[in-house]
Deep mutational scan, measured.
Amino acid sequence: QSYDVTDELPLPPGWEMTFTATGQRYFLNHIEKITTWQDPRKAMNQP
């Protein structure tokens, strides 16, 4: 797995990073009650 500086940034409020039983990373948004494979920190860093 390649290193990404985004991995060091804190998640936005309400978000949690977790893993499936097979080790795949995904993200939970407790405020909007959604899950996604997309890292919400990457969207924050788009110009």
Score class of each variant (00 low, 15 high):
residue 13 P to V: 12
residue 22 T to N: 11
residue 38 Q to A: 10
residue 32 E to R: 14
residue 8 E to I: 07
residue 13 P to Y: 10
residue 24 Q to F: 03
residue 43 A to G: 14
residue 41 R to M: 02
residue 42 K to V: 09
residue 40 P to W: 00
residue 9 L to Q: 14
residue 16 E to A: 08
residue 21 A to R: 10
residue 39 D to E: 03
residue 6 T to D: 10
residue 44 M to H: 11
residue 33 K to M: 07
residue 13 P to E: 13
residue 28 L to H: 03
residue 16 E to V: 08
residue 11 L to V: 05
residue 36 T to D: 01
residue 39 D to N: 06
residue 31 I to P: 06
residue 44 M to W: 09
residue 45 N to H: 11
residue 29 N to P: 00
residue 14 G to D: 07
residue 32 E to W: 15
residue 33 K to C: 08
residue 13 P to W: 07
residue 14 G to R: 03
residue 7 D to N: 13
residue 37 W to P: 04
residue 17 M to Q: 15
residue 5 V to P: 07
residue 34 I to H: 06
residue 6 T to C: 12
residue 40 P to F: 00
residue 33 K to H: 08
residue 10 P to L: 07
residue 7 D to E: 06
residue 7 D to S: 10
residue 22 T to F: 06
residue 2 S to P: 04
residue 37 W to T: 05
residue 28 L to V: 15
residue 26 Y to T: 05
residue 25 R to M: 07
residue 29 N to F: 00
residue 42 K to L: 10
residue 16 E to T: 08
residue 7 D to T: 12
residue 17 M to F: 08
residue 39 D to W: 02
residue 2 S to E: 07
residue 43 A to T: 15
residue 37 W to D: 04
residue 26 Y to V: 06
residue 5 V to H: 07
residue 18 T to N: 09
residue 18 T to V: 13
residue 38 Q to I: 14
residue 39 D to V: 02
residue 23 G to V: 00
residue 43 A to V: 13
residue 24 Q to P: 01
residue 10 P to N: 09
residue 12 P to H: 01
residue 32 E to A: 15
residue 23 G to P: 01
residue 20 T to I: 01
residue 17 M to N: 03
residue 22 T to D: 15
residue 11 L to W: 02
residue 18 T to R: 15
residue 21 A to G: 12
residue 35 T to I: 05
residue 22 T to V: 05
residue 16 E to R: 05
residue 10 P to H: 08
residue 18 T to D: 14
residue 41 R to W: 02
residue 25 R to K: 14
residue 32 E to D: 12
residue 10 P to V: 08
residue 12 P to F: 00
residue 19 F to V: 12
residue 2 S to R: 12
residue 19 F to T: 10
residue 46 Q to F: 15
residue 28 L to G: 03
residue 9 L to Y: 13
residue 37 W to F: 12
residue 13 P to H: 14
residue 30 H to S: 11
residue 38 Q to Y: 11
residue 39 D to I: 04
residue 14 G to I: 00
residue 13 P to Q: 14
residue 45 N to L: 10
residue 9 L to H: 13
residue 4 D to I: 08
residue 3 Y to L: 06
residue 39 D to P: 03
residue 47 P to S: 10
residue 7 D to I: 08
residue 29 N to S: 06
residue 42 K to R: 10
residue 4 D to K: 14
residue 33 K to I: 00
residue 23 G to S: 03
residue 10 P to M: 08
residue 45 N to A: 14
residue 42 K to F: 09
residue 8 E to R: 10
residue 4 D to G: 08
residue 8 E to C: 09
residue 24 Q to I: 07
residue 14 G to M: 04
residue 4 D to H: 08
residue 19 F to M: 08
residue 34 I to V: 10
residue 17 M to A: 13
residue 34 I to N: 06
residue 19 F to C: 07
residue 29 N to C: 00
residue 29 N to G: 02
residue 20 T to M: 06
residue 21 A to E: 14
residue 8 E to S: 12
residue 45 N to R: 10
residue 22 T to R: 09
residue 14 G to S: 05
residue 39 D to C: 03
residue 35 T to V: 05
residue 19 F to L: 10
residue 21 A to V: 08
residue 22 T to G: 12
residue 34 I to D: 04
residue 8 E to P: 11
residue 9 L to F: 11
residue 39 D to A: 02
residue 12 P to N: 03
residue 27 F to C: 01
residue 44 M to T: 13
residue 27 F to I: 00
residue 15 W to C: 03
residue 36 T to L: 00
residue 5 V to E: 11
residue 44 M to P: 12
residue 31 I to Y: 09
residue 29 N to W: 00
residue 7 D to Q: 08
residue 20 T to G: 05
residue 46 Q to I: 13
residue 26 Y to E: 03
residue 25 R to I: 13
residue 13 P to F: 11
residue 15 W to P: 00
residue 43 A to W: 15
residue 4 D to C: 15
residue 18 T to C: 14
residue 19 F to W: 13
residue 43 A to L: 14
residue 28 L to W: 05
residue 10 P to S: 10
residue 31 I to S: 08
residue 7 D to C: 08
residue 45 N to M: 13
residue 35 T to C: 07
